[in-house]
């Protein structure tokens, strides 16, 4: 009972700290001085360097989803609707969520480990002493980079997934690229694309924020760095699903479905 109370207290404390950390980000990100060079460097690392991994997973997801859906659609005699169905599935849900999860695994852990090691080697404290705002330099740039790069990655991931799906359709059947393209876009609407695009900003923000928080608050030496990296991935993955759940409710309320 004692332990349980302790856990609850710890959990609530962490939630409070994280809220404070997020508030600190919002109070600082628009104020000068802007760390533009560091921001672009982070964008490059976070966005461009993640593209091969996101592209590969997206391609495989598109291909596999197509091949998995085919038998069910054949049962209903609507095999010709395969591109439309896969297109909607990828753009609405699979693209953003899978990309965000891969992104959390790659970037969330690396931010957590990087900031954690800086924290335990007291580089962050040294930065503060030298007059550089470590929060601005380390946290704001990274969170902005993840927030802005994930939607781009999601878009490119969608494109690669659709290409994978096109190949998947053509493994068993014959569909020209023009027909595939037309079928996919004929069945998409703004209600499919815009909410998915908007929620990917939140995914990116969550991944960056959790990674930075876990790294910034890591303690207990090098062991703590590993724990920070791990818990950053776990927490951001959970947050991605929670945000997804909220997003689908909000789009439903707004009538965009």
């Amino acid at each position: 009972m004692m332990v349980n109370t302790q856990n609850w207290k710890q959990w609530l404390e962490e939630a409070g700290e994280m809220s404070r950390f997020t508030g600190r980000f919002f109070s600082q990100w628009f104020r000068p001085r802007y760390e533009v060079t560091e921001f672009f460097r982070q964008c490059f690392i976070v966005g461009y360097r993640s593209l091969p991994l996101v592209g590969l997973t997206g391609f495989i997801m598109g291909l596999v989803l197509t091949l998995q859906l085919r038998p069910s659609l054949i049962d209903y005699g609507v095999e010709s609707q395969l591109p439309a169905m896969v297109g909607i599935a990828i753009v609405r849900e699979v693209g953003p969520v899978i990309t965000a999860l891969i992104f959390a695994g790659k970037i969330g852990s690396s931010i957590g480990a990087e900031l954690g090691s800086m924290k335990v080697t007291e580089q962050i404290d040294a930065m503060e002493v030298s007059g550089t705002n470590p929060f601005k330099y380390l946290v704001v740039t990274r969170v902005l980079a993840t927030t802005l790069m994930l939607p781009v990655l999601v878009m490119l991931g969608d494109a690669i997934s659709l290409y994978g799906s096109y190949l998947g359709v053509n493994i068993r059947g014959v569909t020209s690229f023009d027909l595939f393209w037309t079928q996919v876009f004929d069945n998409l609407s703004f209600g499919d694309v815009v909410p998915a695009f908007v929620k990917s900003f939140f995914f990116g923000f969550a991944v960056g924020m959790v990674g930075c928080f876990k790294g910034y608050h890591s303690h207990k030496g090098t062991e703590g760095v590993g724990r920070s990296a791990n818990s950053a991935v776990v927490l951001s993955s959970i947050l991605i699903f929670i945000i997804d759940l909220v997003a689908v409710q909000v789009t439903d309320i707004l009538g965009l479905n």
Binding site: G47, L51, V91, M149, V152, M155, L156, D158, L188, F190
Partner: peptide, 22 residues
């Protein structure tokens, strides 16, 4: 990075344009 971002944005714009056209 520029190529990466522009490619992503182009696909988004294309997507939105195609839907808008439809």
């Amino acid at each position: 990075l520029g190529v990466f971002v522009i490619a992503g944005m182009l696909f988004l714009i294309l997507l939105l344009y195609m839907i808008g056209k439809n």
